[in-house]
Design a protein around this nucleic acid. Sequence first.
DNA 1: TTGTATGCGTTATCAC
DNA 2: GTGATAACGCATACAA
Lengths: 346, 346
Amino acid sequence: MGARLRPPRPRSATIRDVARSAGVSPATASRVLSASRHPVSERGRRRVLAAARRLGYIPNLLARSLLTRETAAIGVLVPDVSNPYYAGVLRGIEDAAGPARRTVILCNTDRDPAKLRWYLRALMERRVDGLVVAGGSFGRAETAITGGALPVVMIGRGPARLPSVRVDNVAAGAMATRHLLELGHRRIACLAGPAVSTTAADRVAGYRRALREAGLSAADEVVLEAGFTPTGVFALVDRLFARAPAPTALVAPNDLVAVAVVRALHEQGRRVPGDVSVVGFDDIPVASYVVPALTTVAVPTVALGRAAVEALLGLLAGRPAAPVVLPCELRVRESTSTLVEGRGSS
Amino acid sequence: MGARLRPPRPRSATIRDVARSAGVSPATASRVLSASRHPVSERGRRRVLAAARRLGYIPNLLARSLLTRETAAIGVLVPDVSNPYYAGVLRGIEDAAGPARRTVILCNTDRDPAKLRWYLRALMERRVDGLVVAGGSFGRAETAITGGALPVVMIGRGPARLPSVRVDNVAAGAMATRHLLELGHRRIACLAGPAVSTTAADRVAGYRRALREAGLSAADEVVLEAGFTPTGVFALVDRLFARAPAPTALVAPNDLVAVAVVRALHEQGRRVPGDVSVVGFDDIPVASYVVPALTTVAVPTVALGRAAVEALLGLLAGRPAAPVVLPCELRVRESTSTLVEGRGSS
DNA sequence: TTGTATGCGTTATCAC
DNA sequence: GTGATAACGCATACAA
């Protein structure tokens, strides 16, 4: 006698039950229910379908996957869903996965390498068909875990050999900074995102490049590490404006922080954009509704997620994935304005 | 000869490979690798572990689940992850699921019953251990699909018999409205969320109750349907303030819309809170950073998600789930203030 | 303490 | 066009 377990949950109808009820063999039932291309008589088909409905048959994907070696599931690794940026990405992933009949297994890494690796293993144990990884810290060690056996698409920059879908954050950083330069600003501070984030690093690099191209020197660069959340931003802004000469413009690491910066300045009695211009990144949903509406470099988060899944589906279909770089767009709104002479001069 | 499929992906090491490499039987290998309570000699254990490491063995959860009838996966149905409210809920779900070694399968329903039912079926095919459903429209038809075979925990109100984790949105709506009444406001308008949302309906009910308790009549109620996103809010506010007498205070369906309302008023030249007081719900991350900082009724979204998973885990462990009602909290900030006499009188 | 054998639910193969 | 059968990878009842 074989395994005889206490069934933790009632056993639902199997394909054998359906077959018996329809008066056919399990093979025939399977051919009907799994949309196989194998021919089945019209009469048999009807009987199987009727029996399946009658019994409330729900196929067991676990058993099917065990045999076909495909789970129709994709794993998604993201630092934090409650961040609007990743929420948008996730939305795009879901939007593309649904119609392709794939389900999404979600994992929050919190940018913690240990957590990342743990989840990675969990996803491999589940034999997901592929992975979409957003928010970096997916390096050589992690590639080793997947053993190259698993198609992986990165959102943002990752290990060079992995296909990626991203925006050019250096260009985005430069775009934001150039906008401020064109408005006449010369003392422009830059709040950087977390040190581990390549996105943050690239935006800072773009900031530096734009300054240099405008003829400013390294001495004119003011870069402070802030992070991608408002935590600690108030103190940072205090520090930034305590020193003289104070900046007249500021590049925030993202919109969330930009909103906090605007408020911090407001509390100091400085007006945006009257006294200080502020530019953010991402164009999160509230960006255009806050007062002043945020000037920002829009990142197509939903499109990123969507493109990543499309690339992954291509990979699964055997098509090689070309790197995708989606365009960013400067959206000039109310938080930036021309430098008023007499205040900006050093 | 049996199934001989073209392997779409290279076959990874199985427990038989490990057993052979370790010089033991598959049973012994299984006992070591699945943390079974069955005794295994120390020597055997070491050999199996070594072999597993050597071969890069990763257990196949599909096969294990087929046998144990447990997948360690929970399905999550949510209207829209890119909404900060649900992003918070999702975060809480993930936070509680991870340490319990459960993975989360995410589905966006968009409040579309057809999509909901499709996903529901997909989750059942995957044999998830249980379901967390947020954002309603999970009614009798859906309960029928699960056939009661699947533990379900609702976040928010749902079919009466299903265990739920929620906040008292009637109380929340009353709390927001009472705050405005205490500030002296009498002409208070209410923007309702989507008609299908019980959360929205409850908040409106609370609004009505508070007005009534303050001795106002049904004639004093002004309720307009807005939705949970800023779409169309500008036109709505225009309409609202075109009529006389204009309201002096406004209850928004959530913070996202509240921010948009503040902006719409700003564009009309009305000041918040000087001319109009505005209160929102949820206390989303930006709420305290916008200017004016939003007075809002905080909903513990992350805690809701966490509690839902805990209830579900309890259910899976055989413990009955008592309904959980988490407290809301009024956070008075800058978007509400005392009614200035002479403007508020009719 | 170990090994052998069985079956979880499904689909591919082969013979009819 | 149909049916019997093996196998996917694993955990357990049972015998040793």
